[in-house]
Computed example of a mutant assay.
Amino acid sequence: MSETPADRDRDSEGRARSARPRDGLGRPLPHGAEGVERQPEGVARTPEQTVDEARRLFAAGRPFHAHEVFEDAWKSGPAAERALWKSLAQLAVGLTHGARGNATGGARLLRRGAAGIEEWSHDSAQARPYGLGLAELADWARDLATLLDEDGGPLDPAAHAPALGSAHS
């Protein structure tokens, strides 16, 4: 029996959103299984709060959840910074795929995110917005993509988490 749109789980705004629990890498688990707490969506944070929360999630081995934090900044932040936050979200998803064992997809997203932050940095002339060392992040992403190309993963997400620097620099 196929699921119709009316049968799907919905959030408080009526958007489709699975109620299934998820693991630390965002993969759905069976109904009734114990998952990790989900990252709330649509949270407005300052850029510094965004970086701090993403740093905490990366350190906990939860890059999928860090991606959601960056996605909130990408969708709610100033237009001039959307490419930065989108690129950072791509880095987090790249690490997520690498941790899930999807080396090809992970490497592709890591390289796309690295190119995006370099382009944003060049266009904005900001090398360290909110304490983020963008050149260092691009190097980290490309090195991790190469590791995925060579070793295939899966990666330990906490051990391979990026150094985001200090949000208060």
Rank of each mutant, 00 (worst) to 15 (best):
S2C: 04
T96C: 00
R112A: 05
L132M: 09
A89S: 14
E71I: 02
T4K: 08
R38M: 07
A107S: 15
A103S: 05
S76R: 13
P5A: 08
E119M: 02
G35E: 08
D123G: 09
G105C: 01
P5N: 09
A99G: 06
R142M: 07
E71N: 10
A159Q: 12
F58S: 02
T4C: 11
V69M: 14
A89E: 13
A103N: 02
R55P: 14
V93K: 00
L95C: 00
W85T: 00
E118N: 09
H31R: 13
A89K: 14
A92R: 08
W120D: 04
R45W: 08
E13W: 12
S166W: 04
L91S: 09
A115V: 03
R111Q: 11
E48L: 09
W120G: 02
E3V: 11
A92C: 12
E13K: 14
A159Y: 02
P5G: 08
F70T: 01
S124N: 12
A114L: 03
A163K: 07
A167Q: 13
A145Q: 05
G26S: 08
H168D: 14
A161F: 03
S76E: 13
Q49Y: 07
D52K: 10
P40S: 06
W85P: 01
A89G: 15
R55C: 13
D156M: 04
E150S: 05
H65N: 05
T146Q: 14
P40C: 05
S121M: 10
A16F: 10
E13S: 15
D7K: 06
E136R: 13
L137C: 08
S166A: 13
G152E: 00
G14T: 10
S166P: 10
V36G: 12
D151E: 08
E119Q: 08
E68Y: 04
L148R: 01
D143K: 14
A92H: 05
Y130K: 12
F64K: 02
L57S: 11
G32P: 12
V36W: 12
A6Q: 10
E48G: 12
R45L: 14
H122G: 15
G105D: 02
A158C: 09
L164C: 11
P63K: 00
E13A: 14
A66D: 07
K75I: 04
G24D: 11
V51Y: 03
R17I: 09
A158Y: 04
R8H: 14
E150H: 03
R17P: 14
S12L: 12
F58D: 03
Y130S: 11
R55D: 15
L29T: 13
A79W: 07
V93G: 00
P47Y: 06
V93H: 00
G77E: 04
G26H: 08
E48T: 11
H122D: 14
R27E: 11
A167M: 10
L57N: 06
L147P: 02
P21W: 05
